[in-house]
Simulated scan of single mutants.
Amino acid sequence: MSFFRNQFANVVEWQEFRDDMIFYKWSNREIKKGSKLIIRPGQDAIFFNNGKIEGVFRDEGEYDIESQIIPFLSTLKGFRFGFNSGMRVEVLFVNTKEFIEKWGTKNAINIPTLGLPGGMPIRANGTFHFKVNDYVALIDQIAGVREQYVVEDVKIRITSILDQLLMKWISREGKDMFNLQSNSFEISKGIQEDLDMQMIKSGITITGFNVMSFSYPKEIQDMINKNASHGMVGNVDRYQQISLTDGMASGKMSGGGAASDMAGMMMGMNIAGKMLNQMNQQSQDQPASSQNAQSPSQPNAGEQKRPNFCPNCGTKTGEGNFCSNCGHKLV
Rank of each mutant, 00 (worst) to 15 (best):
I46C: 04
N49S: 06
N49C: 03
I53E: 09
E54T: 07
G55L: 10
G55D: 12
G55R: 07
V56T: 15
Y63G: 03
I65E: 03
S67D: 07
S67A: 09
S67I: 03
I69M: 12
I70T: 11
I70N: 05
I70D: 05
I70A: 06
L73A: 05
L73S: 04
L76A: 06
K77S: 15
K77G: 15
G78A: 02
G78S: 08
F79N: 02
F81L: 02
F81N: 01
F83P: 01
S85E: 14
S85K: 12
M87D: 00
R88K: 10
E90N: 15
E90C: 07
L92Q: 00
L92T: 01
F93T: 02
F93E: 00
V94N: 01
K97H: 10
K97R: 14
E98D: 12
E98H: 11
F99M: 13
F99Y: 15
I100K: 15
W103R: 12
W103Q: 08
T105P: 03
K106C: 00
A108G: 07
I109T: 08
I109M: 12
I111W: 05
T113Q: 10
L114Q: 12
L114F: 07
L114I: 13
L114K: 13
G115R: 12
G115S: 11
P117H: 03
G119N: 11
M120I: 04
I122L: 12
R123T: 14
A124D: 07
A124F: 11
N125G: 13
G126W: 08
G126V: 09
G126P: 03
T127G: 01
H129L: 11
H129C: 09
V132I: 14
V132R: 05
V132N: 08
V136W: 02
V136S: 09
A137I: 00
A137Q: 13
L138T: 09
D140A: 10
I142P: 05
I142G: 03
A143K: 00
